[in-house]
Amino acid sequence: MTEALAIRNNLEAQRFEATIDGQLAVCDYQRQGHHLVLPHTLVPPSLQGRGIAAQLVQAALDWARTEGLKVRPVCSYVAAYMRRRPETQDLLAA
């Protein structure tokens, strides 16, 4: 079972972030009109494999849905995450 993270939307830095064991994990975004571009997700190597990136990306997707935004997954991790989850397909920008 993956631990639930305290994820914040840092609007000033344009990223979803969580601090785990004193280390910062992030999912960067750029809001461009009616689109949310997700260019980069970073989880420190010592924290990888714990589902942290997935939780960060899901938080970003949930926010996009709430804000009525379409998502452009530039980050390869985000693109793969969305491909594996049919329930996110309606968020993809045309």
Rank of each mutant, 00 (worst) to 15 (best):
residue 46 S to F: 05
residue 85 R to D: 13
residue 5 L to Y: 12
residue 35 H to W: 12
residue 77 Y to K: 02
residue 51 G to I: 00
residue 45 P to S: 14
residue 33 G to R: 04
residue 17 E to T: 04
residue 12 E to Y: 03
residue 85 R to W: 08
residue 2 T to S: 15
residue 87 E to A: 13
residue 3 E to P: 03
residue 83 R to H: 15
residue 20 I to Y: 12
residue 84 R to F: 03
residue 86 P to W: 00
residue 14 Q to S: 13
residue 90 D to A: 10
residue 14 Q to C: 01
residue 92 L to G: 04
residue 88 T to L: 09
residue 23 Q to E: 14
residue 39 P to I: 00
residue 4 A to E: 13
residue 78 V to I: 01
residue 63 W to F: 14
residue 41 T to M: 07
residue 91 L to H: 04
residue 48 Q to K: 14
residue 11 L to G: 07
residue 18 A to L: 11
residue 40 H to F: 09
residue 21 D to Q: 15
residue 57 V to W: 07
residue 61 L to S: 08
residue 84 R to E: 10
residue 55 Q to D: 12
residue 59 A to Q: 09
residue 17 E to F: 08
residue 24 L to Q: 15
residue 64 A to Y: 03
residue 52 I to Q: 13
residue 76 S to D: 04
residue 37 V to F: 06
residue 10 N to K: 01
residue 94 A to W: 01
residue 26 V to W: 01
residue 32 Q to V: 05
residue 64 A to D: 07
residue 12 E to W: 04
residue 35 H to D: 08
residue 22 G to Y: 13
residue 1 M to Y: 02
residue 58 Q to D: 15
residue 54 A to W: 05
residue 78 V to R: 01
residue 30 Q to S: 02
residue 79 A to Q: 09
residue 46 S to W: 00
residue 85 R to I: 00
residue 42 L to D: 13
residue 43 V to Q: 07
residue 17 E to M: 08
residue 29 Y to W: 06
residue 19 T to Y: 02
residue 49 G to A: 08
residue 37 V to K: 06
residue 66 T to V: 04
residue 7 I to T: 05
residue 75 C to F: 00
residue 34 H to W: 11
residue 44 P to G: 12
